[in-house]
């Protein structure tokens, strides 16, 4: 009894201290969360402000984050009136789906062969893949431009898809994941008469959803915002993706900031949805591979 009476006040004090530190931690986290959310909030709020003068006046201060004054969808309407936004949106989605979709297949198969098959030069290939990760696309765009021009691919879908299907970083991620999958699974399937294709499709793939999700998101983010390459290889509106199309608003002064923010909002939302859809698997993969975007 005496022991319990003595322990009670101490627990209370400890609980109070713990609550206080938790409150401080949460306050800190809320501040940080707001800090990282500010640009997105600013963009969405600004896209809804239809008074261009008010929008410009608010851009310099805290009022930029507050939806007040003339609020509406006028900026979004203007984007659709001024350009073929639907076309550009389709182009970006199509290029993204094709690049990431085919990339997942090609890169994972390549990584699987590196992780499981034994052939001459395998170790060199792994080294080459790792080395290629550090070569930025920007450094090879000029020779790439000359190459695709030679084959007549300028201003097309394939010129925006094919060069980016094979991706060293994706191969490396798949490779890292596959070598951790116990070989016992493969061997059991092989003993049962399965071929390598069946092992890949029916054993490895079902076990690898987290890494597929991670690669899909990382590649998705990269391709959705790709600007320099489509700028160089597209001409008319037919194959123009969103990052190049938004340049239409960066024209004569003064800038139409309302339209720019509306365009940016419509460009950002699909990526947020993509992330939310794959979030569970993405987190799993980050936890298991230590890779983050």
């Amino acid at each position: 009894m005496a022991h319990e009476a003595k322990r009670g006040p101490m627990s209370l004090a400890r609980r109070t201290r713990r609550s206080a530190s938790t409150a401080v931690l949460y306050a800190l986290l809320i501040v940080l969360a707001l800090y990282f959310l500010f640009p997105t909030v600013f963009m969405v709020v600004s896209s809804l402000k239809t008074d261009e003068l008010q929008l410009m006046a608010d851009m310099g201060g805290v009022r930029g984050f507050i939806p007040y004054g003339e609020i509406g969808l006028g900026n979004f309407q203007r984007v659709f009136q001024e350009m073929a936004f639907g076309r550009f949106f389709f182009n970006s989605v199509f290029i993204l789906v094709m690049t990431v979709g085919i990339g997942l297949l090609v890169n994972s198969m390549f990584a699987y062969s590196l992780a499981r098959l034994r052939f001459r030069g395998r170790a060199i290939l792994v080294s080459v893949v790792v080395a290629l990760i550090i070569v930025p696309t920007e450094s090879v765009v000029i020779p790439m431009l000359l190459m695709v021009n030679t084959v007549g691919w300028i201003d097309s879908y394939q010129v925006q898809i094919v060069p980016f299907v094979a991706d060293a970083f994706s191969i490396f991620l798949f490779y890292q994941f596959f070598i951790q999958v116990p070989k016992d699974f493969d061997e059991a399937a092989l003993i049962d008469g399965a071929g390598y294709w069946t092992v890949y499709a029916r054993v490895i793939l079902p076990l690898s959803r987290p890494v597929f999700a991670s690669v899909a998101i990382l590649q998705g983010i990269q391709h959705w915002g790709r600007f320099l390459w489509p700028l160089m290889v597209t001409r008319g509106e037919t194959y123009r993706p969103l990052p190049v199309a938004i340049q239409q608003f960066f024209s004569q002064d003064p800038k139409a900031w309302g339209s720019i923010f509306a365009f940016a909002t419509m460009t950002t939302i699909p990526l947020l949805i993509l992330f939310l859809v794959f979030q569970k698997w993405f987190v799993q993969s980050v936890a298991s591979s230590g890779v983050k975007g």
Binding site: L145, L231, V244, Q247, S251
Partner: peptide, 16 residues
């Protein structure tokens, strides 16, 4: 062509 990137696109086209 979009005005914000017009010169860059012309330069790329000239290159190719």
């Amino acid at each position: 062509l979009p005005e914000g990137s017009y010169n860059e696109q012309v330069s790329a086209a000239a290159l190719s």
